[in-house]
Design a protein around this nucleic acid. Sequence first.
DNA 1: CGAAGGCTTGATAGACCTCAAACACAGTGG
DNA 2: CCACTGTGTTTGAGGTCTATCAAGCCTTCG
Lengths: 253, 253
Amino acid sequence: MPHAALLRLTSGFDMTSAESVAYAEALGTPRTFAAGEEIAREGESADRCAVLLEGFAKRTRVQADGNAQILSFVLPGDMCDLQTLLLNPFDHTVSALMPTRIAYLPHAVFRRLIVQHPGLALSFWRESLIDAAIFREWMVNIATRDAYTRLSHLLCEIYVRMDAAGLIDKLGYGLPLSQQLLADATGLTVVHVNRTLKRLKNEGLVTVRPRAVAIHDWNGLSAAGGFNPAYLHSKAVRKVPAAAPAADQGLMH
Amino acid sequence: MPHAALLRLTSGFDMTSAESVAYAEALGTPRTFAAGEEIAREGESADRCAVLLEGFAKRTRVQADGNAQILSFVLPGDMCDLQTLLLNPFDHTVSALMPTRIAYLPHAVFRRLIVQHPGLALSFWRESLIDAAIFREWMVNIATRDAYTRLSHLLCEIYVRMDAAGLIDKLGYGLPLSQQLLADATGLTVVHVNRTLKRLKNEGLVTVRPRAVAIHDWNGLSAAGGFNPAYLHSKAVRKVPAAAPAADQGLMH
DNA sequence: CGAAGGCTTGATAGACCTCAAACACAGTGG
DNA sequence: CCACTGTGTTTGAGGTCTATCAAGCCTTCG
């Protein structure tokens, strides 16, 4: 498992090294999903959990009227459907947004693992609690903040989580965040996302392009989003970028 | 522990009877909170978890601009701050909405308990997963549904959860659901909640009075809310009321 | 180079908010 | 028993944020 993203598996989550080694060894050989493929489906009962090693995925709930709400994003090191270990059937859908590598942990193996290493159960339980904290934050974001604040907040969250996963390049990140995706995540329409993004760009805060996000003014953006990373708990305890670095050459042009 | 509400502690959550007895015995003597009192506070690190035995509470996040978002409601049998066992400090506030009885489970006792009864750890982990499912559903509710649908959905959820806790009286429930509360829970304003409630009443679906909710047409209300109780998982496996019972004498007048 | 998907922009409409005031109702004190 | 007070409900008028509809443009990729 040579992926930088796996840092989180081996160093994060309060695992001892014996635990993280046992965890890593329990994972099967990875499989690759293309962008658009579904990794876990609503209504299905799983007999294994999917660990996202590399790539990027979204959790969605599709409504009867066809429109989809994104519930959160899945980043390297996260589990896609951890809850299926205890709760079936699965109640939303996880799909890849770019080529994504997934390793499986069969429930039977998982159960044996947490019996042998009770500390691991607590680590994964803790992971689900952090996920829940993110859901709560999104609820607050969507319910109480306007479009401008909402988008800023979301871009900040992704930045900090990408940073915690060791995937930050200068002050930006390379993710396929289409405007439709941002709309589905914030409960807005593409048209309005487009206009709001233009404003954020004009104000020199952030530029969102089809395949990458460049943050020009972290302090400005996190102020605009009323962003406080506390809710991400240990998922994001790394450094927060200092004052106002202009290091976006790699992502601007 | 003579409370009907404690059914859930002893029969729910997949606990074996040995486990639920051990759990019940680990709880300290209850304390009562008056309406408005805070049971757990944002920013504080707890060394015990609070179990709600009787009463009704809300989870809130207060914004800088003063307005508060309700994240979910806490019903008898639920834990108020289960996450503090693994995640500190606490990231929102829980406060009583009526006289509420709380029993405490010190973290040290809790840890010992789950070491002796590993199955209990899974039961509580599962409880946090169901909480997370409720947060996701609220996010979808707030982000994608209009006021009319949103309110119907919320009233359905509370009905089903109250039913699972054994607290349903005819086709209604006695909870102090002020319009301001419903507004904070749905991300609407009191004024708009008032108008929407009037519409729901005129259509013969439900009547919300300061201290009780009377459902006149369950099928109609759950259709109006696009309500599907699946996300509540076992938290609500009881009966769903049959066709169209007109049994609301006790709550109407 | 043409197709497809995503981005951009304009004009119009609607759901919900804001402000403001009147109205019910339960509990309190005289 | 009745004013009194406070909290919560109800109603009206006007404003705004965001959605909807529609069309043109750009970029990527086979």
